[in-house]
Computed example of a mutant assay.
Amino acid sequence: MTDFVLVAGAWLGAWAWDGVAARLRGAGHDVHAVTLSGLAERRDTRPSGQQTHVRDIVEEVERLGLRDVVLVGHSYAGVPVGQAAERIGERLRRVVFVDANVPVDGESFLSGWPSEHVRRTIDAQGGYWPPLGPEDYAGQGLTDEHIARIVGATPHPGVTLTEPAVLTRPLGELPATYVKCLLDGDEPMPAVAALLGSDRWELVTLDTGHWPMFSQPGALARVLHEAAIRP
């Protein structure tokens, strides 16, 4: 039995993991889905930045006294999850990045890709990044119901996207699985490709889009289970 700690990406809360969590529990694991500050049922908690999200994850692990932890970060959440993974020390069994950004010391989530439009949107929306329109989720293996749930999710606190990550050791030293969702592009981003050169990292692919917790929860749960039982 493994303790999974699941963290979804921008706009989403713990609710996004319901289908995956049920399958993991059916396989005998304990599952703890985390809603980050400023999102979903915690929308009235105003985060002071990305480091607040790192603390959210670390404090959940410590509050529950978890050990043998598999930390899972999807999309944006890969940035705080990667930082939290090194901070929980020997409690960590493995970290899994699901089609996720990874933290790069001194760089933010928005570093390294054309982000001026996102920054302008955050400024215009009072410091928040609203979910994209329905048309932006086409071709990702999602149903109309899935898309409606994401579009109706919480605007994401913009400051968490612009604050730089803080790492105290090379991320490649952590035992990690990277899950690349092929409908969102065949190749991992350069920062991920570099980390996959580590003998402690493995690459797994899923033939689905960027939100596999909705489009293929069973397949994603199997990948997570297999990551947990790796030596």
Rank of each mutant, 00 (worst) to 15 (best):
W129K: 08
E145I: 12
V58A: 00
H156V: 08
V95R: 14
V151W: 01
D3V: 06
I88Q: 03
V70M: 08
T205I: 05
T177V: 13
E60R: 15
I57H: 01
H53Q: 00
W201S: 05
T160L: 07
D99E: 11
R93M: 02
V223G: 07
W11S: 04
W17K: 02
W129V: 12
G197P: 10
P114T: 14
D68M: 13
V166Y: 02
F109L: 06
H32L: 10
W17Q: 06
T208V: 04
D186S: 13
A8E: 00
E60N: 12
S108G: 08
L203N: 08
L24E: 06
G185E: 01
D30Y: 11
E163N: 11
E90Q: 12
I150D: 00
I57W: 00
V69N: 02
Q140V: 10
F214Q: 11
A191H: 12
L220F: 02
E226N: 14
S215C: 11
D184C: 11
D18W: 15
A191D: 11
Q125M: 08
E226W: 09
W211H: 10
R63V: 01
P130C: 08
G19M: 03
H210K: 12
V98K: 07
L203V: 03
R230G: 04
S115Q: 02
T162Q: 13
A21C: 05
P212S: 06
R222K: 11
S48E: 09
P212E: 03
S75V: 03
R149N: 08
P130G: 10
E173Q: 15
P114W: 02
A14G: 11
G152E: 06
E145G: 12
D123M: 09
H146T: 15
G158D: 11
T208W: 12
L110D: 04
P157K: 14
A84R: 01
A221F: 01
L206Q: 04
Y137C: 05
P217Q: 07
L24K: 09
T45H: 13
E187I: 10
P175S: 11
M189P: 14
E173M: 05
D56Y: 00
L71F: 00
G152A: 05
T205W: 01
R119T: 04
Q216A: 14
G112W: 09
I150T: 05
A221N: 06
P155C: 06
G152T: 11
D30A: 14
P80I: 00
V5Y: 02
A228H: 04
W211D: 04
H146W: 03
T35C: 07
D3R: 08
R222D: 05
K180A: 05
G141W: 01
L182H: 03
L183M: 13
Q51M: 07
P47W: 02
V223S: 03
S115T: 14
G197F: 02
